[in-house]
Design a protein around this nucleic acid. Structure first.
Length: 592
RNA sequence: UGGGGUGUAGCCAAGUUGGUAAGGCAACGGGUUUUGGUCCCGUCAUUCGAGGGUUCAAGUCCUUCCACCCCAGCCA
């Protein structure tokens, strides 16, 4: 819009304040390096968008870099289907990791070498306790744990055992590699956490090369360091893990000081030293994850919605997934704007879905071209309009943006209007059509309703009107006022379309807080999807491409469906959002 | 007193050497309008989870208490 520099962001969030401080201190020189590290075991949702905008946004603001890292340390849950969707969604949101797409599995050999180093340092051991026994030995939140009987094995024995683990000599679960920290720590994360477990499972990238896989706490901080990340930003639930993040990195750094530990593997030492991530190591910072009213944002619950068929798939337009929003017609700009506005802090919070809708409408209001479409058609015959006459009106595609141009809309003796736009006994505040009333057909003519035709059940099936030829274009020289302005389509030219109306997926603000004996599934809104198959739209929409956003004047923002809409053949439009509706508000007040 | 966090309006959120509560959403009034849309204008915290204390002055400092969230996966 203007060349003015953007007003300095007043009140930066705590993450950016930390970065400012680190930059001042020269902690990493002038480097700022972040990463977005999803596990490829599900589709990205709006909560991830917050993290993506934060990580990529911060990097861009500070002229730094942000990596895409697929945190694939658990082969039984992960799949390439998910890595493909993640890549697509991050890109769609408008972010670019350039050549920095990494996988935790890229570092499997390095992780392994670090594990052996920890063993040589006497900081890790192979434990033969069963999973159940480990749990027992861990103690409880309020009572300390106790040492495993295998805790004091010799370095040589641990090394041999660990190599045997790697070489596939043990069954799944036979033993694990554990960090030797403190079984009495008040933080249970530090009670000798597992570093490696045996899983004879096929990995989506490394195949059958490995049968031992690193745990998150071990792999994540090391991956950050290998990638020279400076600020490792994650969500609040990892706060308890931060001491372990620090322990792993600091232990490695400590080991680095003793070159004799690398006698057998000098190239490993050299490789580690080549990473700036070890001369100035990354630190972890935690922010509150996003919650939004009226939906669920946990992978487990989203996957349940898909698997139990409550929705049509991950990209069902009612889903809070990125792909769902995309198909619904949300724009990446609106989602980014939303993420900017909600802020980044440490307090648990739930943002009202109204804010997201606001961001959407604000964006779409500016960019969506306008069209006319009638969702529930009611026939209107204009009796004094000649049978063989026809008008073609050139209408602006946008009321405030002339540069968007115009489109031609045909008009004829028979038209359709919205059923809701007619009332036989209209109340005072109803500014639409009624018997004897004169209204404006948008950009066409003033018409006056002269007759109401009903079927045998008393249902209104057709209206008769007259029009004033002097009001062509929708205005009159005498400046007389009409009751309102309505949208319409020409009966002869209209194109049939399917319109899908979406409402919120859940009937309550917080489906997570289910009452006794219920689950979030019990709050699914049975009317969240309404399909209208007999809609009539203006002919200009016939060739619209899938994914195009537009507005049906007076009824809402829509988007040609990405899957089912076929230009010229089958028109399928998703309602992205309604327009703000003050008439609905008035109706509500009248009911009271 | 197991440990780690967080409490500012209906929602989100600034407030950083103590100086007299930003902004956005929602809501509610009004104006403009060929979309009951958009846009514009206005209203909306004597008070910062509660109590006590220090101070001329406290959301900010001290103190006691309360509430909520996270942690006992060989998940991330």
């Amino acid at each position: 819009m203007s060349n003015q520099p953007e007003a300095p962001a007043k009140g930066k969030d705590f993450i950016r304040q930390i970065i400012d401080r680190d930059l001042e201190d020269g902690k990493y020189g002038d480097r700022v390096h972040t990463r977005f590290p999803p596990e490829p075991n599900g589709y990205l949702h709006i909560g991830h968008a917050k993290s993506i905008c934060l990580n990529f946004g911060v990097a861009a603001e500070y002229k730094g870099q942000c990596n895409l890292r697929l945190d694939d340390t658990n082969p039984v849950k992960e799949d390439t289907e998910y890595v493909d969707s993640i890549r697509e969604d991050v890109r769609w949101l408008g972010f670019d990791w350039e050549d920095r797409q990494f996988f935790a599995s890229d570092y499997y050999h390095l992780f392994y070498d670090v594990a052996e180093l920890f063993i040589r340092m006497g900081c890790a051991y192979v434990d033969n306790l069963s999973a159940d026994e480990i749990r027992e030995y861990r103690g409880t939140l309020k009572t300390p744990g106790k040492n495993s009987p295998y805790r004091d094995r010799s370095v040589a024995e641990n090394l041999e055992l660990f190599r045997s683990m790697r070489d596939g000599k043990f069954e799944d679960g036979a033993c694990v590699l554990r960090a030797k920290i403190d079984m009495a720590s008040p933080n249970v994360v530090l009670r000798d956490p597992a570093l490696y477990r045996i899983k004879h499972a096929h990995h989506h990238r490394t195949g059958d090369e490995w049968c031992i896989y690193p745990m998150y706490d071990f792999a994540h901080c090391l991956s950050d360091a290998f990638e020279n990340v400076t600020h490792s930003i994650c969500t609040l639930e990892f706060e308890n893990n931060r001491p372990l993040y620090d322990w792993v990195l600091d232990t490695l750094l400590e080991g680095l000081k003793n070159e004799s530990l690398f006698a057998d593997c000098p190239e490993f030492l050299a490789e580690l030293k080549a990473h700036p991530g070890f001369s100035a190591r990354p630190y972890q910072y935690e922010f509150a994850r996003l919650n939004i009213t009226g939906t669920v944002l946990s992978k487990r619950k989203l996957i349940q919605l898909v698997q139990e068929g409550h929705v049509s798939g991950w990209d069902d337009p009612r889903m809070p997934t990125i792909s769902g929003f995309r198909r619904r017609g949300y724009t990446p700009e609106s989602i980014r704007d939303f993420c900017d506005r909600i802020g980044v802090a440490k307090a648990d919070s739930t943002v009202e879905s109204a804010l997201l809708e606001h961001c959407l409408r604000q964006d779409l209001n500016e960019r969506a071209p306008r069209y006319l479409g009638v969702l529930n058609p009611l026939k209107v015959v204009i009796e004094n309009y000649p049978e063989d006459q026809e008008d073609v009106f050139e209408m602006p595609l946008h009321p405030e943006d002339e540069s968007m141009g115009t489109r031609k809309v045909p008009f004829g003796r028979e038209i359709y209007i919205e059923r809701d736009d007619f009332m036989e006994n209209p109340p005072k505040k109803f500014f639409r059509m009624g018997p004897g009333r004169e209204v404006r057909l948008r950009f066409a003519y003033y018409v006056t309703c002269t007759d109401v035709i009903k079927d045998e059940n008393g249902e209104v099936i057709e209206l008769r009107c007259t029009y004033d030829p002097e009001t062509k274009g929708g205005w009159s020289k005498d400046g007389r006022k009409v009751k309102g302005t309505m949208h319409w389509v020409s009966a002869r030219h209209a194109v049939q379309a399917e319109v899908r109306l979406f409402d919120k997926l859940f009937t309550v603000d917080n489906p997570n807080a289910a009452e006794e004996g219920k689950t979030f599934v019990d709050y699914i809104n049975p009317e969240s999807l309404e399909v209208l198959t007999d809609c009539l739209v203006e002919p200009a929409l016939a060739e619209m491409q899938p994914g195009t956003n537009f507005q049906f004047e007076r009824t809402g923002y829509f988007c040609a469906d990405l899957r089912d809409h076929v230009p010229g053949e089958k028109l399928v439009f998703n309602r992205t959002a309604t327009l703000r509706d003050s008439w609905a508000k008035i109706q509500k007040q009248m009911k009271k």
